[in-house]
Design a protein around this nucleic acid. Structure first.
Lengths: 217, 217
DNA sequence: GAGTACACGTGATCC
DNA sequence: TGGATCACGTGTACT
């Protein structure tokens, strides 16, 4: 065998000694080996690139398997950090999207005691930018007893999009008077009212009248 | 060589013919092979994990090398997206950090005409959460004629941190009355005032008094 | 020597 | 057919 280039003394010598004229190096076999080597170095090139890209792998010299392990750790970390911060760039049309956040139940970090008191909701609002917009969004979120846990706002070219991560209370004594189940539509309506024009807003002014009237425990 | 179990006709026969009693299946060789198999399946397991983690690789069946290529593309994309949005989780102590954003001049997407009209600044404010905080931050940013381009707010456990990306005007006719060079300290002072306690704020109320009074070139 | 890690050549398999 | 990819066993080097 010719496994290592520097170790072809023993076996190669035996082959020559036994069969003499055995062309053990046919063109087919050679091109096959070369293709393999080329494949290997392509893979290892990408592996080296990753070694320089993942911070934990750049520090110390790592096993090839351990490197890949760190890569999956790093990708998981980055993608969980970037979760919810996608599609934050404002689009052309006004829109309000309210949806229940998917519960990521990896591991066992669930605190069952508080899990039923509130539910996580993601609200995305895209509209033209204007002064006081954030305050009005805060009013809308308060109108359904929601509490902002995280928010990301991006404005470009006069248009802005706010992606809000909210904890909306499930208790029946909610500020808006609705029970826990119907607060999502209420939140959606309140957010829609924020991006309505002045004339549209007059028709739905019941929202504005209610802004500071509720007084709950 | 005994590369494949079913391909041991030529060389193995030769070895037996030449050396006779060669026990080609020693315990050492066997454990070695098993260790290699275990190593291979560790690597391939991580590779499969990555195949499910990278969206472009989940779609179609990919080459092992091509998969790694997509992994580096994905990691590069995620890490560039997460740039600037690090350290958003609020800490224990109040703090205000204002620093000029590093200009990322990759490629040639610089619009030299507008580049001197404003400069990009990153401001990070960490303090206890309270109603109206965002409005006050907006006031502070307006006091130095800054315009929020992007903002990320995270609040956890009653404490909140806002990372603001601001375009602060360089023109001499700035709202605060300062010239272009000294607006960063002014912004820092204004943001500091926001997180000050009531009593601290009384001592520095000159800030509030000056808010809309100064008007000189 | 036992254990581990990498590169190599090879057989098998699928376009 | 020939090209491309994979898993396998092996040689070699380092701890």
């Amino acid at each position: 065998m010719v496994a290592a280039r520097s170790g072809d003394d023993a076996e190669l010598g035996l082959d020559v000694e036994c069969l003499a004229a055995a062309p053990r190096w046919t063109r087919a076999r050679r091109s096959h080996s070369e293709a393999q080597r080329k494949r290997r170095e392509r893979i290892n090139a990408h592996l080296d690139t990753l070694r320089g890209l993942v911070p934990s792998a750049s520090r110390v010299r790592m096993d090839k398997a351990a490197l890949l392990g760190e890569v999956v750790r790093y990708v998981r970390k980055l993608r969980s950090e970037a979760a919810g911060s996608e599609a934050v760039v404002p689009g052309e049309g006004d829109e309000v999207v309210v949806e229940e956040e998917e519960v990521e139940v990896e591991g066992c970090s669930c605190d069952a005691g508080e899990r039923q008191a509130a539910r996580r909701v993601k609200a995305s609002v895209c509209c033209a930018d204007r002064p006081g917009l954030m305050s009005e969004l805060g009013d809308a979120e308060r109108s359904v007893s929601a509490r902002a846990v995280r928010a990301e706002i991006a404005t470009v070219g006069g248009r802005t999009r706010s992606v809000l991560e909210l904890d909306v209370a499930r208790t029946a004594a909610a500020g808006g008077g609705s029970n826990g189940a119907s607060q999502l539509p209420a939140l959606q309506a309140a957010l829609r009212a924020v991006i309505m024009s002045q004339e549209e807003l007059l028709a739905v002014e019941s929202y504005k009248q209610r802004r500071f009237s509720a007084d709950f425990a």
